[in-house]
């Protein structure tokens, strides 16, 4: 629980420092991309903290490239 709150707080502090100047300059494009990437990153990290197993994308690649290895 504390780990999740800590993660969210780190995310909040970072966005405070990074985003406020951008909002003043009205760079909405940057703000959108920043928040989308940050929320994906935070979501993955929260899943890791909760010890929920995330399927690794590399198994798919392993299957895909099996014929090309010798």
């Amino acid at each position: 629980m504390w780990a999740i709150i800590g993660l969210l707080m780190i995310g909040g502090v970072i966005s405070l420092f990074e985003i406020l100047p951008l909002i003043k300059q009205k760079n909405w494009r940057e703000v959108t991309v920043f928040f989308i990437l940050l929320s994906i990153g935070l979501l993955l990290n929260i899943l890791l903290v909760l010890r929920i197993e995330i399927p690794t994308p590399l198994d798919l690649l392993n299957q895909l490239y099996k014929p090309f290895t010798f």
Partner: peptide, 8 residues
């Protein structure tokens, strides 16, 4: 601006 989200 992208560096911190990418770090996560």
């Amino acid at each position: 601006i992208l560096l911190f989200p990418l770090a996560f």
